Amino acid sequence: MAVIRVPSVAVPLPAARPAFRPDVEGLRAVALGCVLLFHAGVPFARGGNVGVDVFFVISGFLITGLLVRELGTTGRVDLPAFYARRARRILPSAGVVLVLTLAGTALLAPALQAGTGRAAVASALQAANWWLLSAGDLHVPLTHYWSLAVEEQFYLVWPVLLLLARRRPLVALGLLSAASYGASVLLTPGHELLAYLGTGTRMWQFGLGAALALLAPRVAGFTAVHPGLTSRVRWAAAGVLASAVVWAGWVDYPGWAALVPTLAAALLIGAGASDPASGPGRLLVWRPVRFCGRISYTWYLWHVPATFFAVTLFPSLDRWPFLLAVELLAGGLAFLMTVLVEDPLRRSRFVASTRRGLVLGAAVTAVSLGAALLAVG
């Protein structure tokens, strides 16, 4: 089993496990809400796709936090163990939804079975974003897997880069993020879909969250000394993020415009370092909001297939109030998935080891890929 040792890094890395951030869990619910409004076609939420930007920042913050704490505690990162944790967390729910979506398509929309199967092949291989860029017909119920693919592709690169950077992780992260954002700005005017779906043009959003994790001790110290300022910053960031849900759908995106909601999400996280309930954090830490955040991943997985099949069954109701209602009801499926799949695997000692976690990930991928190839015929 490969274990990579790192002598030291130039930023202070926390050795102890930090306090749970309930506000970040609540912010996941906000990100999900933006996405649901956008995909339902709610008129005032044409920019609700910024919810994906928020998810990317949160992911960069949380995952990098785990990596730097391991570095700070042991001076090393066990890469196989990292990927085993990712496999246990991400793949089972994604695989179940993928297989059930293929079955639903075969039953309710057989004419789309082959196209959905091709999308499922790309999704199972964590390449859905690149498939979307090359596919002609996007009318399949798996298009939302593009963001999962971008995330997994980023985490093939970032842990290794963090290790190679050794003493200067912030420098490496800054260079990577600057290049990524620059590519997004340059590509958006003429190649908007590539800029939107491309991994290279999205890395900077993970990078901003990762920078927060690398600077966590300093950020926490600053916010503790300036509670009034940080509370006002959080309120301003919340307002900016809410406004982006309205205007972001009317401009070329992502490009320069994506910096606004992405930075707002980072400020909401960073300014809550010492007091998660400060400012709008009082809403984010509210238990119902946190509950929605806790099941946001499986809810995200289900919301597109749910609306797709609902419209297939009731085409005359293809309007935003109906679609939004279906998306909200999909939360029930998300809860069941969390209870029946995610939580048991998270608590299971049987798959807790690195080897079994990797085997689980490989098995889920094989089953998903097999079902997809069967659908393609």
Rank of each mutant, 00 (worst) to 15 (best):
Y155I: 03
G51Q: 07
L156M: 14
L37W: 00
G361K: 12
S123L: 11
R202I: 13
G221Q: 05
V30F: 06
E327S: 12
W320G: 11
F308P: 05
A244E: 03
R202Q: 15
V9N: 00
T298Q: 15
W130S: 13
A224M: 04
A114Q: 15
A195T: 01
A362F: 02
G41K: 06
A87Q: 03
V171C: 06
G221L: 03
E70K: 08
W299Q: 08
T354G: 12
A334H: 11
T199M: 13
L208R: 10
L333C: 14
A238Q: 08
A366T: 15
A213P: 02
S123Y: 02
T74V: 11
W130A: 14
L163K: 10
D78C: 08
A264L: 01
R356C: 07
L374N: 03
A213M: 10
A128I: 00
R218N: 01
Y83V: 01
F335T: 13
T354H: 10
R349D: 11
E151P: 04
A178W: 02
V376E: 12
A211S: 14
N49G: 06
V233H: 08
L170C: 13
V376K: 09
L267G: 05
A19P: 02
A31D: 06
V359P: 01
L215D: 10
R86N: 08
F20K: 04
A106S: 06
G136R: 15
A244D: 05
V52I: 12
L32C: 06
R85K: 14
T105V: 15
R294N: 10
G198R: 04
A111M: 01
L27P: 11
V233C: 15
G65A: 09
T199Q: 12
A128Y: 03
L193M: 14
A81I: 00
L164W: 13
A84N: 11
R21M: 11
A84E: 06
P280M: 12
L328G: 07
S353H: 09
R202K: 15
G272Y: 02
Y196W: 13
A271R: 06
S231G: 11
A114I: 09
A216T: 04
G209V: 02
Y253A: 14
G332C: 12
Y83M: 04
A81W: 06
F206P: 01
L67Y: 03
D78N: 15
V245R: 01
